[in-house]
Amino acid sequence: MAADERVFKYVRLPEGYEIVHLTWIDPQKQESLASYAIRMAERIDTSQPFVLIGLSFGGMLVTEIAKRYPPVKTILIASIPLSAQLPGYFRVAAALRLHKVVPIGMVKTAARLKRYITNEKSEDKKLIWEIINSSDPAFIRWSMEAILTWKNEEMPQQVLHIHGTRDEVLPARYTKPTHIIPKAGHLMVMSQPDDVNRILHNALAI
């Protein structure tokens, strides 16, 4: 939820595209996911054609941006376009308001420990640990609330949805991807970038 542009280090787009990263901004008090997304979108140059790409939480954000500023294509990676596709245990957590009481330190520790059983390269595991350690607890707390209270029933137009069969955060069985990568987990952009890049090139070749 607090990963930055460093996780896209292996992503390569076809010639002719300029990559512009939308960095996180500070959320306002009790701000919704949709409201936050539109504020992020203020930095997009909509005077020329553009493509939106979002990973995980970022995919939910670009889904909301696409409703206000239609892109040429919306690309979701290890994400979901509809709030109804959140796993049932997310809704249970929301009903019990677990996101309000679970210590963020525990969330970070769990994320760090998970790297021992994931298949990223050693250097990438170190990078992910750095991202986890430097992430803002207040932002993580807000994003948990934003995801669990997100309501969206509108599917983006021209959507490309890449998902892995071993995504442990947002399991593929709860959503309907256009492209499936076998044995890929949630951070497939780092663990299986060649597969991701091949799909992106096929979809975006000018």
Rank of each mutant, 00 (worst) to 15 (best):
1 M>R: 03
2 A>F: 02
3 A>P: 00
5 E>F: 12
6 R>G: 08
7 V>C: 10
9 K>H: 13
15 E>A: 14
20 V>W: 02
20 V>N: 14
24 W>Q: 05
24 W>K: 03
27 P>R: 03
27 P>G: 07
29 K>T: 09
31 E>S: 04
31 E>G: 03
33 L>V: 04
35 S>R: 01
37 A>T: 02
45 D>C: 05
47 S>P: 01
50 F>P: 12
52 L>V: 07
55 L>A: 09
57 F>E: 06
61 L>H: 07
63 T>W: 10
72 V>R: 15
72 V>L: 15
74 T>Y: 13
75 I>L: 05
76 L>F: 10
77 I>Q: 12
78 A>D: 08
83 S>A: 10
86 L>R: 08
86 L>G: 06
89 Y>F: 12
89 Y>Q: 06
91 R>E: 09
99 H>E: 15
102 V>M: 12
105 G>F: 08
105 G>I: 04
107 V>L: 15
108 K>M: 09
109 T>P: 00
111 A>L: 14
112 R>L: 14
117 I>G: 00
117 I>H: 07
121 K>H: 10
122 S>R: 13
123 E>G: 03
127 L>K: 00
128 I>H: 01
139 F>W: 11
142 W>A: 06
145 E>R: 15
155 M>L: 14
156 P>E: 02
156 P>S: 01
162 I>R: 04
164 G>S: 10
166 R>T: 06
174 Y>P: 03
181 I>Q: 00
182 P>M: 00
184 A>N: 11
185 G>C: 03
187 L>I: 12
188 M>E: 05
192 Q>S: 13
195 D>G: 14
199 I>S: 06
200 L>V: 10
201 H>M: 08
205 A>I: 13
